[in-house]
Design a protein around this nucleic acid. Structure first.
Length: 436
RNA sequence: GCGGCCAUAGCUCAGUUGGUUAGAGCACUAGAUUGUGAUUCUAGGGGUCGCGGGUUCGAAUCCCGUUGGCCGCCCCA
């Protein structure tokens, strides 16, 4: 038993474990590129104050934080949003709008290990800065959907629940709630799905009993499933801000519909997300069948860049986590075998033949073929076994008999058929075989 | 931070009321096999039985503690 192990909550990625993750990253990157997003990266370590400024002092308990040797209070990043706001804020005047950026990176949170949750995990983050209108939401929600569809997940596998904190702000204000009451109520709404009416304790504990009318009004919003439900409720209130907000809803939903994505999106005002900094539309992606955590989440945060010291810059963003995503793909059998298999395995007769084979191996590799061979001299039987197990389709045989005749033998490993070609035509023969 | 379950080889597990040198399958390495791979046979490497303490003539086994893991709660950027 090895005396050193990885730290609690941290994962080793042996090749067979890295492969699925690489698959996720590749598909996410492909989707982001297709949508015209630019990739960026950033330091793993940031000033502790950056996170306190965004989330409050309580956040420190959930961070990997410490004082560095220069006495600076620092933290391993628990999320990308503060960092990307810092970066964009610093160059906001020089960046062409809209700013569409994405990253794939590791994050660290000091918390208890659980299914789909660890102390180090990866996220895909995508954000649009500088666009205040709902077109940014359309672009990001469709990118989110594409990130999951690129992994072969379909509309029956997942969906995106779309909600709106602005709608709640206006609605609760119209019902007579003050700012603080509104925040408590959003906390209750966040828990309503899990706790039912129990969730309103969050509100009543802080602000006293709520009227039957208030509770009925909130639950009525929570019951909304479609845009027309929403239009009905809003029409009854005859409230100018709410009516204006409905226009944004129509634009988002009709935009997504025009992209052919209507079946992936549902109206669900039960999603408010815990963060106080969200200012408008918020959305989360969920597995339709299982009981996994949210696959992804995001929303609009128009005040955050400024709050972190930058200019007033509207922003929308979302993140997808790797752990829950991988659990889902595993459940669905959608993790492909992406082990690195050689195209060609070279079987070598002995030391003399090895020298000759090395020249051809180098030439094949130089033009991009994946070529493997045994590092030590082995019997032919063992070499053919290795060739098969390597996953190569083709074996090249460099034996004494062949080389004496100036030829190399090609063996089709699946058909178990062999043929000889002159040595100088090996590259051509390999190319013909593999492209056939 | 709180609660429940668990911990024996790389993996899945067996191990009798506490009793000799802790086992199997899979995987790995080598041989049978000096020019032909999915089978077969043989051999080998790999364990301070999570760690520490206690009870005992004797502990993988019983007791206490601790660490780690899984699941749930809190939280979830």
């Amino acid at each position: 038993m090895a005396s050193f192990k990885s730290l609690p909550g941290f994962r080793d990625f042996y090749p067979e474990e890295l492969a699925p993750r690489t698959h996720l990253f590749r598909q996410w990157r492909r989707a982001a590129h297709a949508y015209g997003f630019q990739e960026y990266d950033a330091p793993v370590l940031e000033s502790l104050d950056l996170y306190k400024a965004k989330s409050g002092d309580e956040i420190e308990g959930q961070l990997f934080s410490f004082a560095d040797k220069g006495g600076r209070d620092v933290a391993l990043r628990p999320e990308m949003t503060p960092t990307v706001c810092r970066m964009v804020g610093a160059r906001a005047n020089a960046l062409k709008r809209p700013i569409k950026w994405f990253s794939i990176a590791d994050f660290f949170r000091y918390e208890r290990m659980q299914k789909g949750r660890g102390r180090c995990f990866a996220q895909f983050n995508a954000d649009i800065f500088g666009e205040a209108g709902p077109e940014a939401e359309i672009e990001l929600i469709s990118l989110l959907i594409q990130c999951l569809r690129g992994l072969d997940l379909q509309a029956e596998d997942f969906y995106v629940r779309l909600s709106d904190r602005n709608l709640w702000f206006f609605y609760l204000a119209a019902l007579g709630l003050e700012e603080e009451q509104t925040q408590s109520m959003l906390g209750a709404i966040d828990k309503f799905e899990r706790l039912g009416e129990e969730a309103f304790k969050v509100y009543t504990d802080a602000h006293g009993a709520m009227s039957a009318e208030l509770q009925a009004a909130v639950q009525r919003m929570l019951a909304i499933k479609t845009l027309s439900d929403l239009e009905t409720v809003v029409a009854e209130l005859d409230h100018p801000q709410l009516s204006a907000r409905l226009d944004d809803w129509r634009r988002v939903l009709s935009g997504l519909e025009a992209m052919g994505l209507a079946e992936f999106v549902s109206v669900d005002l039960g999603v408010v997300r815990g963060l106080a900094y969200y200012t408008g539309f918020v959305f989360e992606a969920f597995d339709r069948k299982g009981d996994l955590r949210a696959l992804a989440g995001g929303g609009r945060y128009d005040n955050l860049v400024q709050k972190l010291g930058g200019p007033d810059l509207p922003a929308v963003g979302f993140a997808i986590g790797d752990m829950t995503m991988e659990l889902l793909l595993q459940e669905r059998g959608l993790l492909p075998d992406v082990a690195n298999k050689p195209d060609v395995y070279v079987v070598i007769g002995g030391p003399e033949e090895r020298r000759v084979a090395f020249g051809d191996i180098a030439a094949l590799r130089a033009v991009g073929y994946r070529v493997d061979y045994p590092l030590k001299d082995l019997g032919f039987g063992k070499q053919f076994k290795n060739a098969t197990e390597s996953g190569a389709r083709l074996a090249l045989i460099y034996g004494g008999d062949e080389l004496a005749n100036g030829v190399v033998k090609l063996r089709d490993l699946s058909q178990r058929e062999e043929f000889e070609v002159p040595r100088e035509q090996v590259a051509l023969a390999v190319s013909d075989f593999l492209s056939a």
